[in-house]
């Protein structure tokens, strides 16, 4: 036992085995049910779009790391997650090139300039999504009628299928056509991965239970949306749909559990996260009422992300310090 080479390092000498890669894989797993539901509803096109998005994101990242002569960061799976989230947030009818451009932009503009992981001020997938959404506002709204949608409201001059939110925006009385249960179970028109509040809720809870995401931001976001929509609906039922309608349509659930819980673009302190979510949720409803044609939730979260450094200043009082001293 003498003269062995012993390793010396600083405490702690054990870890819980949590790695970035595992946490990302958990996130992808949490997204899987909603994605599968999307494939079922929208068919092989949706599956192909997701595959294309992931491939494009990974290829871009591999290319950039190679050009910059850096260690490849593909292994942590973040590129896969970025491509997946991007593809799940677009409707099933979008052309392939749109998803490719979005994924390339997400990695090229949203992620890599800020370091491989952890520096991005805005969620990279949202950067890609909003770049393509502002560039091709018509294509991004290529909604497809899902297999099981019970309500088919067609508005003249609209795209193939109309999302509940658009239909209600044009004619508030249409809200009665949509049953809350249908919306909640995912029988609605919308982006591939965001149509099923139920499955997203389950996936989000899974993430929270696995401690990959924290509960403060999603709770704040849903609360913010619910409150804003509730107040709006009480004041003017024709101008603002009910809270449940807002929560179960569009990418509200997706945003709450998968976008508000990103790492680098959201605050890390409990109150910071909650306020981030709360204000973000209110902002999303405001943007919807104002008639933002696409991406109220992503925009709200992006805007809040820019304020993340401010929220990060809301730190709890450290142990043993007097509150006013902080």
């Amino acid at each position: 036992m003498t003269n062995q080479r012993l390793v010396v390092s600083i405490s702690p000498h054990i870890k819980n085995g949590r790695t970035v890669r595992r946490m990302i894989v958990t996130t992808i797993a949490a997204l899987a049910p909603a994605a599968l539901w999307g494939f079922y509803q929208f068919g092989l096109d949706a599956l192909a779009l997701v595959a294309v998005g992931i491939t494009a994101a990974c290829a871009t990242e591999a290319l950039i790391t190679r050009l910059a002569k850096k260690r490849s960061s593909l292994g942590d799976g973040h590129a896969v997650l970025t491509g997946l989230v991007l593809a799940l947030l677009v409707p099933a009818g979008v052309p392939f090139w749109l998803v490719i451009v979005g994924a390339v932009m997400a990695i090229l503009v949203g992620k890599m300039p800020f370091g491989p992981l952890g520096g991005a001020p805005i969620y990279p997938a949202l950067v890609g999504l909003l770049i393509v959404a502002t560039s091709w506002p018509t294509e991004i709204r290529s909604y497809v009628q899902p297999t099981t949608a019970p309500v088919e409201l067609k508005v003249e001059g609209a795209a193939d299928a109309e999302t509940p939110r658009d239909a209600v925006f044009i004619d508030p009385s249409d809200e009665a056509e949509y049953k809350t249960a249908d919306l909640f179970l995912g029988k609605q028109v919308g982006p591939i991965g965001a149509i099923s509040p139920l499955l997203l809720l389950l996936g989000g809870l899974f993430l929270i239970l696995r401690r990959v995401a924290r509960w403060q931001a999603p709770l704040g976001f849903l609360l913010g949306m619910g409150l804003a929509a509730g107040i709006g609906h009480a004041l003017d039922p024709s101008g603002c749909a009910s809270a449940s309608f807002h929560l179960f349509t569009g990418s509200a659930m997706f945003g709450a559990f998968f976008l508000c819980t990103d790492w680098s673009s959201t605050p890390v302190t409990p109150w910071g996260m909650f306020l981030f979510g709360l204000i973000g949720g209110g902002l999303a409803v405001l943007l919807r009422i104002a008639g933002l044609p696409y991406g109220a939730v992503p925009w709200a979260i992006v805007i809040m992300s820019l304020a993340t450094p401010i929220f990060d200043r809301i730190t709890p009082t450290p142990f043993g310090k007097v509150a006013s001293h902080a």
Partner: peptide, 8 residues
């Protein structure tokens, strides 16, 4: 009649 999606 309004343009759909562009009421404002």
């Amino acid at each position: 009649d309004a343009i759909s999606g562009a009421t404002v």
